[in-house]
């Protein structure tokens, strides 16, 4: 054994200065929480809050049992909802692919003009919620399925475009170098060296977005863009709580099934 007597026996994972900074950071976080709490409670009418458990129990009791006989009438709007999600995703993918290649640093033809433009498209699409897109589109192209499909597609461009261009930027550049060294044209380099590397990411992103779009399309009916949200809104308006429960259960079931489908697809295709 070597003699360890003359080494220090105290070791800390961070220096004293760092520990002090960390302590103050936590303090600031607590202070922020207290401040926000005050802000929140200022405008709350406590009489209503104290009433909350009774109100919740009241609505809850009116919501059960769900009105099962309403189920057949929901099938057509549910089918519309699934169509909105699927066609919207496909449309989003079709528009996102070129945008992603223009936005990726290693594939863009012009880093000075086209890349910023593509990034702007992505940000613009992402910054507007699908419900807002639907609201605008219902005003422009009228209520119905088409408005919902276009809203979902426009919102999906940003999501798919962003994840896809990040995947493109992360590819291994060496195969591309090797393919261009054979005398291949740029389109062939894209086809042989870049596309094969992003296919797994592409499938995962597309299926994931479809999964999200199923959930988003269930509420588009609230603003008249078709689908099951329309029934949800009219049921709430006439205080038909058992119908509301039925719709929520159906949405839950649909989302569970879509999660399962997307997980299976991802496993099968990658």
């Amino acid at each position: 054994m070597t003699d360890i007597g003359h080494y220090r026996e105290v070791w800390r994972p961070a220096s004293a200065a760092r520990r002090l900074t960390r302590w103050f950071a936590w303090l600031a976080l607590v202070a922020l929480f207290v401040f926000c709490w005050q802000l929140m409670t200022e405008n709350t009418i406590w009489a209503f809050v104290s009433d909350a458990p009774r109100q919740a129990a009241d609505i809850g009791s009116r919501m059960v049992p769900p009105r099962w006989s309403y189920l057949p009438a929901l099938m057509a709007p549910l089918w519309d909802t699934i169509n909105i999600a699927t066609l919207g995703t496909l449309g989003g993918i079709a528009m996102a692919i070129p945008v992603a290649f223009l936005a990726a640093r290693n594939t863009t033809p012009s880093a000075r003009f086209l890349r910023p433009a593509a990034l702007f498209v992505i940000v613009a699409s992402r910054s507007i919620n699908s419900l807002i897109w639907a609201l605008l589109l219902v005003a422009i192209i009228g209520p119905g399925l088409l408005a919902g499909i276009v809203a979902i597609a426009l919102r999906s461009i940003g999501f798919i475009g962003k994840l896809l261009y990040e995947a493109i930027e992360e590819i291994d550049p060496k195969p591309g170098e090797a393919i261009s060294a054979t005398g291949a044209r740029p389109a062939q380099v894209l086809d042989y060296a870049i596309v094969p590397q992003i296919v797994p990411a592409f499938i995962a992103i597309g299926v994931f977005r479809w999964d999200i779009n199923i959930r988003e399309s269930t509420i588009l009916g609230l603003v008249g863009a078709g689908g099951i949200g329309l029934q949800l809104q009219s049921s709430i308006n006439v205080l038909a709580w058992p119908q509301v429960t039925m719709i929520l259960l159906l949405i839950l079931g649909t989302v569970v099934v879509s999660e399962w489908v997307s997980a299976t697809l991802r496993r099968a295709m990658i």
């Binding site: 060496k174 195969p175 170098e177 090797a178 094969p196 590397q197 797994p200």
Partner: peptide, 8 residues
Amino acid sequence: EYALVERL
């Protein structure tokens, strides 16, 4: 490092 396209 060969620089093959691994998924092809």
